[in-house]
Computed example of a mutant assay.
Amino acid sequence: MAGKPSLPLVLTEAEQRTLQGWASRRRTAQGLAQRARIVLMRADDRTNKSVAAELGISRDTVGRWRNRFVRHRCAGLSDEPRLGAPRTISDAQVEEVVVRTLEEVPEGATHWSKRELAKR
Rank of each mutant, 00 (worst) to 15 (best):
A2G: 05
G3V: 07
K4H: 11
S6F: 13
L7H: 11
P8T: 08
P8K: 10
P8A: 04
L9S: 08
V10D: 12
V10L: 09
E13C: 06
E15Y: 13
Q16C: 01
Q16M: 08
R17D: 07
R17H: 14
Q20L: 00
G21T: 10
G21C: 11
S24Q: 12
R25I: 01
R26E: 08
R26L: 11
R26P: 03
R26Q: 05
R27D: 15
R27K: 14
T28R: 09
Q30H: 07
Q30L: 11
G31K: 10
L32M: 06
A33Y: 02
A33R: 04
A33C: 06
R35V: 07
A36L: 03
A36F: 01
R37L: 10
V39L: 13
L40Y: 10
R42V: 07
D44V: 02
T47W: 15
S50E: 15
A52T: 04
A53M: 00
E54S: 06
L55I: 06
G56R: 14
S58K: 12
S58C: 09
R59A: 13
T61F: 06
G63P: 01
G63L: 00
R66F: 02
N67Q: 14
N67K: 13
N67R: 14
V70R: 08
V70C: 12
R73P: 11
C74F: 07
C74S: 07
G76C: 03
L77K: 00
S78H: 14
S78P: 03
D79N: 10
E80Y: 04
E80M: 04
P81N: 05
P81W: 02
L83D: 07
G84F: 13
G84M: 09
A85K: 06
A85Y: 09
P86Y: 03
S90F: 05
D91S: 15
A92V: 13
A92T: 02
E95W: 15
E95G: 05
E96C: 06
V97R: 15
L102M: 04
E103V: 02
E104P: 00
V105T: 04
P106I: 00
P106W: 08
P106G: 00
G108Q: 00
T110F: 01
H111D: 11
W112S: 02
S113R: 10
S113I: 05
K114A: 12
R115G: 01
E116D: 14
E116L: 12
R120G: 04
